[in-house]
Design a protein around this nucleic acid. Sequence first.
DNA 1: CGATAATAACCAAGCGCTTGCTTGCTTAAT
DNA 2: ATTAAGCAAGCAAGCGCTTGGTTATTATCG
Lengths: 202, 202
Amino acid sequence: MPRRKAEAGLEPNRRAELLRAAARLFVEKGFAATTTRDIAEAVGMRSGSPFYHFRSKQELLKEAMIDGLEAGRARIAVAIAGVTDPEQRLHLLVRTHLGTLLEGDCNSPMLLNETRSLEVNERAEIAAAFDRYQEPWQATLDELAASGKIRSAAPPLRLFLFGMLNWSGHWYRPDGPLTVDQLAGSAVAMLLGHSAPELSRA
Amino acid sequence: MPRRKAEAGLEPNRRAELLRAAARLFVEKGFAATTTRDIAEAVGMRSGSPFYHFRSKQELLKEAMIDGLEAGRARIAVAIAGVTDPEQRLHLLVRTHLGTLLEGDCNSPMLLNETRSLEVNERAEIAAAFDRYQEPWQATLDELAASGKIRSAAPPLRLFLFGMLNWSGHWYRPDGPLTVDQLAGSAVAMLLGHSAPELSRA
DNA sequence: CGATAATAACCAAGCGCTTGCTTGCTTAAT
DNA sequence: ATTAAGCAAGCAAGCGCTTGGTTATTATCG
């Protein structure tokens, strides 16, 4: 172990740096259009050096996806901890999800687009991570349906919800007319069928 | 002109064949992951021959996108022609859109993901085509808002709608438990806030 | 009408470059 | 002395695209 805590911990974990850079580039340009040289350069390495940390470019993608999903799941778990009202919990889920998607420098859920670039057995791993991510969502939707706040929590609903949220990564601009809070508000309003509080004074 | 109508018009337009094959492959594997050799092979040509019809791989993408959007717009125009009730028109818009997306062999709106693979000036062209495509949608949403069927037709709504519809190309399987009609039904129901007619007996 | 010129639509071959990845070596911390 | 972490250099394969020729169809003209 050469530098577990060098002098002023400047690079305690280059592996994580690689993952963050890779995730950002994969989202920006797509997996196939991103070269391993791009990734290396983004963290100040030479072209072959990332392969000391990762066996292949695909492994870089897989790890970035799993890390991103797991980080998002953790953020969500913290956000909804102790919140019993399903309506409020839905709002927090949406708001936190849009936060990871649009505010962080590593918008992980967008990487789900690139699942097709993985081998079949690798897909199973990220499918499992995605299932864990979806768990609190479906639970909340079920509660909302049980209490009559929405008509049904049947299959297409959750997928529609993720669709509209994830697609926003394609068009949302932070310097545009909408804040992330407003976005979350209208998304929830669309689902629950009442007017969006954040948008009512626009 | 060598074969304007050979014997039994077997290949009246190889250019269109190339476009269809390219569109399908671009959607399946992504633009960057699709090689011009793949496209050539898909129509039974040698690797260099597509460049007789198209100047570059990017031009192939641009033309495929515009063609797809224009075809979708035409399908929609036919579907909603003469329909005055905005509620019914929305349903037809959604149903037709999902049709081009999930049923046709050339699911054109999915290509919008690949806009980033184009040069800036090329993007303007497809942005114009996409605007034409969106026109009847926004008009219908405005009508629905004016008659109080939905709370607001403000900016995020149309984008959310396209998001949830387009994302369905990622998960929908024709052999799954849902028909396209059911999908369209629940999408419309989600927007209008009443129960989905196609799903009420599931 | 038949010979010839012109052209559309390709093929065969390959060029220059980029790609993911490997290999052997160096450096520095343990 | 061992080992984690990285560099320098490069290999083989694949990439988009070009070039020069080939074939079959069509237009032109005496």
